[in-house]
């Protein structure tokens, strides 16, 4: 019975034929694109490890990780990486001290206070900060921020951790603010209503309801920004100096892991020497540091993600 009814209605003729071969071809192409980045990563890790092994044949890992003097380019050679790690953490630490409060405050403003029109105008403007080439930031730090700071701290060295860190902080503000704001905007309206309904002020709603509910996204944003600061090269290479020194004094000249790598790769260090292999050891350590941070961030997001 039903069959008959069906047959009586002329079904529209299908014009576009599926081509199974084409479909499979597209799938393969897309897969290949996805694999490019995976294989590149694997390639980089292998290259880093192999070259770094060349370094660790001459210098023990213990000496590398615990030594407090870094003088591979002149005699007597010392291969203690801590001054470079210290310089990196000092500049990145200053950067996050700037970016965390400013970025979080902008995120709170954009998600809880700003009207829709203001948000739509301000957010892209903030993100432009992230599009400025880092070399511009570097010269901004060296030629504008440093002279300004030297009026306040006359003893400050021209190349110093403070200017580089501050400017790097400005650079990563949009990462903190934009990702945190996304996390805060994802907190449902109903939770805000509940808090307002209990007499909470706007600030209390933001700090006691929205931020705790968005904490996983906010922490992820901060860690991403911090690993960006740790890996940042141009600003520190231009403005922070090239003096490996284990210090907490931000007014001094330091050297970060990244700017050391720049220095050696641009210099005249002969290939195949221990000095040359140092950059792979430093690079590997940098890679491991950011990898650990990203793993931590992923674990944190999974552990504390709220399901509303």
């Amino acid at each position: 019975m039903t069959m008959k009814v069906r047959e009586s209605i002329p079904s529209p003729r299908r014009v576009r034929r599926q081509n199974p071969l084409g479909e499979r071809g597209i799938q393969g192409l897309l897969l290949a694109c996805a694999l490019v980045s995976i294989f590149t990563t694997i390639g980089i890790v292998v290259m880093l490890v192999v070259q770094a092994l060349g370094f660790f044949r001459s210098v023990s890992i213990i000496e590398f990780l615990s030594g407090t003097k870094w003088t591979p380019l002149f005699q007597p050679q010392h291969f203690g990486v801590l001054p470079l790690v210290g310089g990196t953490l000092l500049t990145a630490g200053i950067a996050i001290l700037v970016a965390l409060p400013v970025g979080l405050a902008s995120a709170i403003y954009l998600s809880e206070y700003a009207r829709d029109r203001v948000r739509r105008a301000v957010k892209p403007l903030l993100e432009i900060l992230a599009g400025i080439p880092t070399v511009v930031y570097g010269f901004f730090a060296l030629t504008f921020v440093t002279p300004l700071l030297r009026n306040i701290f006359p003893s400050m060295i021209v190349f110093n951790a403070l200017s580089a860190g501050l400017v790097m902080g400005v650079m990563i503000i949009p990462m903190v603010s934009s990702l945190s704001e996304d996390a805060m905007m994802a907190v449902p309206r109903s939770l805000r209503d509940a808090a307002y309904g209990l007499g909470a002020t706007r600030l209390e709603v933001a700090t006691r309801v929205v931020m705790p509910a968005a904490v996983s996204g906010i922490v992820a944003a901060c860690i991403l920004a911090l690993s960006r600061a740790i890996g940042e090269t141009m600003i520190v290479a231009i403005a922070a100096g090239s003096t490996p020194k284990l210090t907490l004094n931000p007014l001094e000249s330091i050297q970060t892991m990244t700017s050391y790598i720049i220095q050696v790769s641009l210099g005249e260090t002969p290939h195949g020497t221990v000095e040359y292999y140092t950059i792979f050891a430093v690079g590997l350590l940098l890679f491991v540091m950011t990898l650990l941070m990203n793993l931590f961030s992923q674990w944190f997001v999974r552990r504390y993600r709220e399901r509303y």
């Binding site: 109903s190 939770l191 509940a194 209990l198 007499g199």
Partner: peptide, 18 residues
């Protein structure tokens, strides 16, 4: 906020804080 604390509200969908 003073009005809202003297006049409580319960919403359509249960909305406990996480």
């Amino acid at each position: 906020t003073e009005i809202r604390y003297r006049i409580g509200m319960v919403f359509q969908k249960p909305n406990p804080f996480p």
